Simulated assay, not measured.
Amino acid sequence: MQLTIGDIAEEATIVSPFNKCEDVYAIFNEHASLEGIVVCTDQHAVGLVMKTHFYQKLSTKYGFDLFMKRTVDLVMNKKPLVVEYSLPIAEAGALAMKRNLDHLYDYVIVIKQDRLYGIVSIKNLLIKLAEVQVQVARYSNPLTGLPGNYAIEETLQEILAEENFSVLYVDIDTFKVFNDSYGFKEGDELIRATADIICDIVLTTCNHPSFVGHIGGDDFIAVLPNYNYDRICRSIISRFDQLVRKVYSEDEIKKGYVTAISRKGKLEKFPLVSISIAVITNINMSFVTVKQLSKEAAKVKKRCKTIPKSVFLTMEDCWEEVMPFVTE
């Protein structure tokens, strides 16, 4: 699962809006490394006092005498950046960098269930973003930029501990024939377009942090911390089948097949590319290891391959041999 802003949040130093500026001054003096203080009412963040801004106000003509005996709400930033715990750090970083120059280096305030959770300094945010970017570059697939096998293994290990999860194993059927017929460039474009479809649907449909990875070649994986796979699978299949109509000629679409040299060296008819999705959940089966998960997925994928059109199947479909969802 991707790192969220809440994962790197630190405990915040807080005061009430009714605390005097002299209280804030004393806190900053006592804690020299402290950069800011969150102003709270009943654990709800209502403002932020950064040390640099606070000292600037005190250093103005008569500022010290004007503010020290007055409440902190007169000097606080009433509209600080406040984000939810679950926001990915990349998105939090983008929001932080869009702030006015005067507040560019202010704390990011993190809340969880509408209550103050902590703060993240810009320094720590940038360091963590850099670490994530290095990790992504090291372990991502060079063709699609999606997380590769290292991140996939790590994510699957994590999801096994979740109460509810769905894992979608996605691959393109008869891709080798397409690659041999149209060339590697067109094959790479098809893989990239498929990756875009899966990411767009999974990451925008799921309301909880989800994951999409590229196992390699024409194989992908999506991990959901819930059982909302049905709509996602149908949408992936619909979008992929629309894509297929753009990569073949009208004649090939009409016939529904292409002719190509088989592994036996003979000219044969092959179906147009389609997409298969094997869905593994822990609704009716518990998994202890990733190996168990992969073994069950292999069975479902094998069954998917017997259907010459885009399809998604669950473990239960294979157990019960019910009619799967296929395209018209």
Rank of each mutant, 00 (worst) to 15 (best):
D114R: 04
D114G: 00
D114K: 15
R115V: 09
R115H: 01
R115S: 02
L116R: 08
L116C: 01
Y117R: 10
G118S: 05
I119M: 04
I119W: 09
V120K: 11
V120R: 00
V120H: 10
S121A: 11
S121P: 13
S121D: 13
S121G: 15
K123R: 15
N124T: 09
N124Y: 07
L125Q: 10
L125Y: 09
L125G: 04
L126T: 12
L126G: 14
K128G: 00
L129I: 14
L129H: 01
E131V: 02
V132A: 08
V132G: 03
V132T: 05
V132C: 08
V134Q: 06
V134E: 11
Q135H: 15
V136E: 12
V136T: 08
A137S: 12
R138H: 14
Y139E: 12
Y139F: 12
S140T: 04
S140N: 07
S140F: 13
P142D: 01
L143H: 05
L143A: 00
L143I: 05
T144G: 06
T144W: 08
T144A: 04
T144I: 05
G145K: 03
G145N: 02
G145L: 04
L146R: 05
P147G: 01
G148W: 04
G148D: 04
N149W: 11
A151E: 07
A151W: 07
A151M: 15
A151D: 13
I152D: 07
E154K: 12
T155F: 00
E158K: 13
E158F: 05
E158G: 01
E158M: 10
E158R: 14
I159M: 02
L160G: 11
L160P: 06
E162S: 10
E162Q: 08
N164G: 05
F165T: 01
S166M: 09
S166I: 04
V167D: 09
V167I: 13
L168R: 15
L168W: 04
L168I: 02
Y169S: 13
Y169T: 15
Y169I: 14
I172H: 02
I172Y: 00
D173T: 06
T174I: 06
T174K: 02
F175T: 00
F178S: 03
F178H: 13
F178Q: 08
